[in-house]
Simulated assay, not measured.
Amino acid sequence: MLQGSRCRLCDSIPRVWLLLASGILKGYALEKKVVKSKAGEKVGLPCCHEIPSSEGLHNYRVYWQKNTTEVVLAYAEGNVIREHERYKNRTEMNEKNLTLWISPVEILDNGPYQCVVQHLRFSQNSVVLCDETVTLFVTADFSKPNITANVSSTSCESTEMIVRCSSHGGFPKPQISGALNNVSVAWNTTSVSKSSLNLYNITGKLRLNVTKDVSFSCSVEYNGLAKSSSLLLKKTSNCVVTTEPSSYNVITASSIIIIIFLLAITLAARYLRRHVCSYCCKPQDSVEEGVKECVKPPTSPKVPSETSSV
């Protein structure tokens, strides 16, 4: 009597509540299986039960659901009774080992999946044979990091550069690292953004003073994977040395110019005086020693010419 009442009670419970109850009975058990796949590939999620060769799928109910509430694909008595819109034309189930195949895999497919298998008796009462969770971990490869270096200032001693490293289109959320000649450096700033497809983009920025040619490497790490690039940073060699003239040099140059100018004036004066005196003056001894004076030469008086007659 009690057994019959229990069966009638089971029949009165909607299927969706049976699924929720099976998840609750498992008590959020630890996930035992993890399947990894890359976006765009085909992946199979194993179920916890395999149908014996003596039986067929029509004797079972199989529910593949995500996050215990979202039914991806469901079979009852050999027929598909539910298929999620987002998984339509991307899923199929093996009728013997009940593996769920997804192709192509998308980033949004990432997460835990439950395979719930019920066996149908002749009285149409179902018995839960297994309920197990398998986690699908989807990754997407990041692009090869792109490194750029712009010179902000330079001198003979060092060259200041702004180095940027960027990568895009990957999943899950990445980390970025940098190194100078294999010695780790800390980024000044890093930014991570998410696209409409839930893919990540990442950029790192670094300011460096380069005193010699060095090799810079950038690495983007995600889910145990990594993409790396390197770039040779060259110190600018064509530096210009600017020297200001010292005050001593300025004074020396000015003094030389003044002396040359005075010497030129003195020589010019002496030349002009000698040139003029040679034509208009005659030096004579003066009464006082060392003093000369210029005296005009005497002019002979004009004698009128006379004519005599003999």
Rank of each mutant, 00 (worst) to 15 (best):
Q284H: 02
V276F: 15
C281R: 02
I259Y: 02
P245L: 05
V276H: 12
R274L: 12
E244N: 09
T252D: 11
S255R: 09
N249V: 14
L263C: 14
P283G: 02
S278N: 06
Y271P: 03
E288H: 00
N249T: 15
L267E: 08
L267G: 12
I251P: 02
S246N: 11
N238Y: 10
E244D: 13
I258A: 11
V241A: 07
S237Y: 03
L262Y: 13
E289N: 06
C277F: 13
T252V: 10
L272H: 10
A264E: 06
S246R: 13
I251E: 06
V241G: 02
I257E: 12
T236G: 05
S255P: 03
T242K: 01
S286N: 01
I259P: 00
N249L: 06
I257L: 07
C281D: 03
Y248Q: 14
L267T: 11
I259W: 04
T266C: 03
V250S: 05
S255F: 12
S247G: 13
S247W: 05
P283Y: 07
I260H: 05
D285E: 15
P283E: 05
S237N: 08
I251L: 11
Y279H: 04
V250H: 07
I256S: 05
I251V: 15
V250Q: 12
A264S: 03
E288R: 00
C280L: 10
E289I: 03
S246H: 14
S254Q: 15
I257V: 10
T236W: 00
C239P: 07
S286P: 03
L263H: 09
I256F: 02
L272C: 08
V287Y: 03
K282C: 04
A264N: 01
D285R: 01
T243K: 00
E244Q: 07
L263D: 06
E288Y: 02
S255Q: 10
Y279A: 06
K282M: 04
A269D: 12
L262W: 11
N238C: 11
D285L: 01
R270P: 01
P245M: 12
V241I: 11
L267R: 09
I260Y: 00
S255I: 13
Q284L: 08
